[in-house]
Nucleic acid binder design. Structure first.
Lengths: 208, 208
DNA sequence: GATTGTGAAGAACTTCACAGCC
DNA sequence: GGCTGTGAAGTTCTTCACAATC
């Protein structure tokens, strides 16, 4: 299969989410323009993205929701269930911990970690909680592939290093710190302050 | 001033965050390579990004932290304080509400909104809380420019529409729904499930 | 030696435009 | 009329390479 451009992968993941919703509400088919309106892209971009999937061609008709979803899932291997863990059980960490939807989406939060025994004992959740000292052992024994970092910024890099040496494959960094990882580890960042700053800058620059 | 490419704007916002930390810890100067290592970019990219600022040239020497920070701030108008509001006071909404750091970064959470009077009365915060029905009036009267959407996905588009008609300039969408806004409104999305999916897809695709 | 600054080259991505299909 | 699929064209962004500076 041809290489899929990285931005296209991102969009296909959004399209996949859209298709799940459409399927749940019983919609059978959708056009490239309609998809585009939903994920903020042009119809041409959507068609191009979908073309990378190499779907058997039924030109001229709207995409079948179910079939398209299947092809995206196959190309991006989204059906493969992945185990994730959360490190740092502060406000954001526990908010994500409580997010029930992941299960339906093929992700399982297989563990939570915090420095504080207190928190580990106090938080009520079906997810197994551990001390950070158990991080590497638990990740290996439970086959966890993705780490969600929710620790304070000053501990973020150290946490990332531990995750990497435990063999983690991907990291979602929700701390305000910028972290570095080897190239083979997939990294995405969610930093509210940076996002607000980007929005602010774009508001200013739009006025030119 | 020349147009700054959009990805460069994003990176400059990250660089700005880095410079704040460096300044706080007393670091005086830094090289493009070192900046790059921190924000995951190459040294050439960092220099190019900085070149868009049109800083008076002091070629051959590391960037002065303070000066560079000032120029980014000026070019992107980051020193302009912006008021934001949070709509939806569930777990994520209250977590952001409690995030004290925004103040130092030039953002003020000037209001919080929820459907439930109960929540509005129960939550302890210095931020003024209102019912959603007051959304438009409060946004206008308090000069709020950015809306942070934390409502359940099925209410997200409706919330966005209200924000837009109240004259909002930017939206940070933290709900799982994809929303549409007019082109002149800046929109960024934080959806944990989509992020996890993107990471998962990239893990699969990396193995080729 | 180290660094920055930047035009030029290259790579990556998006859009166009139109053939083919329903 | 609508739509998809896709090579070609266009645009945007990144990297290179090297002069200039410290």
């Amino acid at each position: 299969m041809a290489k899929i451009p990285l931005p296209a992968v991102d969009r296909l993941c959004s399209i996949y989410g859209l298709l799940e919703k459409l399927e749940a509400q019983g919609t059978k088919a959708i056009s490239s323009g309609e998809i585009g309106r939903n994920i903020n892209a042009t119809n041409a971009t959507v068609r191009k993205d979908i073309s990378y999937l190499g779907m058997p061609s039924v030109s001229g008709r709207d995409y079948e929701v179910k079939k398209l979803k299947g092809h995206i899932s196959k190309a991006l291997q989204l059906s493969k269930p992945r185990r994730a863990c959360i490190i740092g059980l502060g406000r954001i960490g526990t908010a994500i911990l409580a997010y029930e939807k992941f299960k339906n989406e093929g992700f399982e939060i297989a563990a939570g970690f915090d420095l504080s025994i207190n928190k580990i004992e106090r938080i009520v959740t079906p997810v197994s909680l551990f001390q950070i000292s158990d991080l590497e052992a638990v990740i290996r024994s439970r086959g966890i592939e993705i780490g969600i970092i929710c620790v304070p910024p000053e501990a973020a890099q150290n946490t990332a290093d531990k995750l990497v040496s435990a063999g983690i494959k991907g990291i979602l960094n929700c701390s305000a710190a910028v972290i570095s990882v080897p190239e083979k580890v997939i990294l995405r960042n969610i930093d509210y302050t940076t996002y607000l700053r980007v929005i602010s800058a774009n508001i200013s620059l739009l006025k030119r």
